[in-house]
């Protein structure tokens, strides 16, 4: 008898105690749209942020490198002039 009661409880309990209370709403038409749209949003958001930051960093590095090259050219040109005119 105990085995039968335990088996019935084990079989019925999972239906009562859902692991995710909100999941009971899955399948309702309005809810399906909400689930799908929010899943897409939560998947796309971190990817979008990572890609956005990567592009921004790449552009910043390229801008800084271009600026550094201009500086180096100016300094080299000044060095050449100095070599021609001699030291102070």
């Amino acid at each position: 008898m105990r085995v039968v009661v335990a088996t019935v409880i084990l079989v019925l309990a999972p239906r009562v105690a859902l692991a995710c209370p909100a999941c009971a709403l899955v399948g309702v038409n309005e809810n399906s749209t909400a689930y799908v749209s929010m899943t897409i949003m939560l998947m796309a958001l971190p990817l979008g942020m990572i890609i956005g930051i990567a592009i921004w960093l790449y552009r910043s590095v390229r801008r800084a490198e271009a600026g550094a090259q201009v500086c180096e050219r100016v300094i080299r040109s000044a060095r050449r002039q100095r070599a021609c005119f001699g030291p102070e």
Binding site: A22, L25, V28, E30, N31, T33, A34, Y35, S37, M38, M41, L42, L45, P46, M49, I53
Partner: peptide, 20 residues
């Protein structure tokens, strides 16, 4: 970035609960 995900989670829960 972490905070954006925090608010995204809250808004997601809000949207799903409101729809149901």
């Amino acid at each position: 970035g972490a905070e954006v995900m925090f608010f995204a989670g809250l808004i997601s829960a809000f949207t799903i609960t409101q729809a149901g």
